[in-house]
């Protein structure tokens, strides 16, 4: 049953990567922006959740709930004041801006939070596990996986069942014609990045609860997210 165990654990690990990737793909899908600072934003969100936990003494899940609106606002502002100004036919400016942001975030966090490893503590939940008969799985990986499924399902519902999702798809197809429909592409982009930051908060919550983190680990998270995107894309091509 080793292979089954490996498969299940692998699948559950995939949950975290899927969370890393969801925000990245959301933004890319709507505005063709590859955010090189995505990993660092995840780390930033983890620190924000940690700060809320320490300041309020609340449980991490509630703390993430408090952090999410703030990070939505941050994402919205980042898009509105920075990324929107560099989006265009030339892919170089947005790449360089997000790369600069990555460097700035890493070093800013280093100054504010120091290079020490941190962790978001959740007590007994950290090591709890359930016996599913054939395999035993940790509660934490299971929760991560369930959250990833929930996030992707919710995103799907937003995309295909709401006016906002319609605006997302229309703007992604053709921003100029979308503006003829009364849609302001810039504010659609800002909402999308805000939403991506909410997903980033969820990813950060699990990252912070499941492993140590410090300001330098952002790029590696970006790379995991990217791998998940590629695997996802390959899977989709395979399915066609």
């Amino acid at each position: 049953m080793i292979w089954l165990d490996t498969l299940v654990q692998g699948l559950l690990l995939g949950g975290l990567y899927a969370l890393f990737a969801a925000g990245l793909s959301l933004v890319f899908g709507i505005m063709r922006l590859v955010n090189l600072a995505h990993g660092d934003l995840i780390v930033l969100a983890a620190f924000v959740v940690l700060v809320v936990v320490e300041a309020t003494g609340l449980n991490p899940f509630l703390s993430a709930l408090i952090a999410a609106p703030a990070l939505f606002a941050f994402g919205w502002a980042l898009q509105w004041f920075v990324f929107n100004r560099v989006l265009g036919k030339d892919i170089l400016p947005p790449l360089l801006v997000t790369f600069g942001l990555s460097i700035a975030l890493q070093n800013g966090m280093l100054e504010v939070f120091s290079a020490d490893s941190q962790r978001i503590r959740v007590g007994a939940l950290e090591s709890a596990s359930v016996d599913l008969g054939l395999v035993t799985v940790g509660i934490m990986p299971l929760l991560t996986f369930a959250s990833a499924v929930a996030v992707i399902f919710t995103l799907n519902q937003i995309f295909y069942r709401t006016a906002l999702g319609r605006a997302f798809r229309a703007t992604s197809d053709d921003p100029v014609t979308a503006s003829l429909m009364g849609i302001n592409p810039r504010s659609v982009f800002a909402v999308a990045t805000g939403l991506a930051m909410v997903i980033v908060t969820i990813a950060a919550l699990y990252l912070g609860m499941r492993s140590n983190f410090d300001p330098s680990i952002g790029p590696a998270r970006l790379i995991f997210a990217f791998e998940a995107v590629i695997i996802g894309a390959l899977a989709r091509f395979g399915a066609r």
């Binding site: 990555s102 460097i103 700035a104 070093n107 800013g108």
Partner: peptide, 21 residues
Amino acid sequence: YGSWYLLALGLIAIAVMLFAR
């Protein structure tokens, strides 16, 4: 100044792309 310096470099690069392409 270590990481403050790098933080500033990142911000300068962003500012250049925004205001002086």
